[in-house]
Design a protein around this nucleic acid. Structure first.
Lengths: 156, 156
DNA sequence: CGGCTGACTTAGGGAAACCAAAGCCAGCTA
DNA sequence: TAGCTGGCTTTGGTTTCCCTAAGTCAGCCG
């Protein structure tokens, strides 16, 4: 089991968590819609306009996000207005925020000149960034990460 | 500037770091190739086979990754073999590991039953996960993140 | 009750991404 | 020098994603 990396033809494709995640959010528009939801956008036309996507595409992707359980669609009413639907993040959707934060951080460094948004800690105002940590509380640099077989590989 | 979130029609699309990052890696195959590179895969046919993608697609995506500076293509030779090319992560590509780690963590929770791989801290063996932290060293839960205008918005 | 607005859906079409099958070329190996 | 293998490229076709333009439907507003 020590050099299971060398035999990864058997498991690289199958049962991969990254591939599973990408089956749900492996698409530009979907992630940008989640970005908007994390900014607090709730209404259909605002999603479409702010993501820069046509209405049919916004409708299709939002529907898929609701079906996948990342957004919750529920009726609401502003005073003096008719009932509408709004889309809000579920816990499952909110758990993707680290992905968005990691993409943002990479994009800040490599893809844009001046970031339009920065994340700050509400309590102390310091900049927020993504870090790898171990359960014992250590910061883990990329070169101190070991890959080990998980429970999905033990039966083999 | 306090409620700049309410006026985000002006900046949501333009100059977004997430959109910029997705222009480079916003595609399933590309991220899976980077996953393989992070596992140590180097040769063309191994990339194609392990990602589960056809050779023409592997060739096109690897070429794009090299052009974008995420992979380095360089000749190497095994003893008694002819010279070949291998693909290895650059620093720019390695900086995407938090994105892969965040996707993996979400997929472990929501997309697969039993993860095939787990990440451990080389020094202590404890499980590695992705966390949001502020520059002052605090752990930052998702609901303690403030969105503030960045330098790219100040001129407006 | 007729118009307007928000939230979509439908129709038609183009571009991008993928596939399988086959071809090409360089350079060991026999 | 004739094959074999690794690393691609070419060809032709399908699926996915996105577009614009137009239509639908509900319900508040006049």
């Amino acid at each position: 089991m020590t050099d299971f990396l060398a035999r990864r033809d058997s498991w690289s494709t199958a049962n991969c968590s990254i591939a599973g995640a990408l089956d749900v959010v492996g698409n530009r528009t979907t992630l940008l819609l989640l970005r908007e939801a994390s900014f607090g956008t709730r209404r259909f036309d605002e999603f479409a306009r702010r993501v820069g996507v046509s209405e049919p595409v916004a409708a299709a992707r939002l529907k898929q996000l609701v079906a996948d359980g990342l957004l919750d669609r529920r009726p609401y009413r502003e005073p003096g207005q008719r009932t509408r639907d709004e889309y809000v993040l579920t816990d499952k959707g909110r758990d993707l925020l680290p992905v968005l934060a990691a993409l943002r951080e990479w994009g800040d460094t490599y893809a844009v000149d001046e970031p339009a948004v920065r994340l700050a800690h509400h309590d102390c105002g310091a900049a927020v960034h993504v870090a790898l940590r171990c359960a014992a509380g250590h910061d883990v640099p990329a070169d101190e990460v070991d890959l080990l077989p998980g429970p999905g590989l033990l039966p083999s």
